[in-house]
Design a protein around this nucleic acid. Sequence first.
DNA 1: CTATTGATTGAT
DNA 2: TCAATCAATAGG
Length: 192
Amino acid sequence: MNKDQNLQSVLEKGAVQVAKELLGWRLVHDTPRGQISGKVVETEAYTSVDQASHSYKWKTSRTSVMFRPAGFAYVYFTYGMHYCLNVVTGEDGEGEAVLFRALEPLEGIENMMANRHKDNITQLTNGPAKLFQALGLTKDYYGVDLRRGTLRLEPPLEAVGRITQTTRIGITKDVHRPWRFYVTDNPFVSKS
DNA sequence: CTATTGATTGAT
DNA sequence: TCAATCAATAGG
């Protein structure tokens, strides 16, 4: 196995580096209706020194899992109606995570369409709350181990193309930090 | 306790 | 451009 394909060694790096290296990995969800999976094509990094992060300055009941060891899922509810999925990174207690912002659908596309109530493939997973819904996830996935289990990360099937690094979307603090990464020209990257 | 905000989305 | 919709957080 390629050293870069060892999930544990990837996740234990700093969130910004992890955000970049997770591009091309696959999010796989085993559901009663079959396997749903997608290739990670867009991510953002959040750290405890970052004012845009939920872990900024201190730990709360909402963010407690962000201070656990790398590999756990941080699920949060926002805007009164949406859930988003992150993976905890860095060392135990750091309070870092990487937000999954977009996927390229691979398996279970019919299930994704049913979950999203959409039949346009480009509208299934091109946003953090969209991919959460498409994968059939719920708030109960808060704190699960993404290294093993029904929801997990699996190594890339092929080399990732060019990567674009830019500023993050949808935040109002620390907007200058270039902590968003996406696969250049991939049609499933969120635009907004 | 009350008020404001927000790592979004979809419709206008 | 803006409403939907509510938990977490800030403020009194």
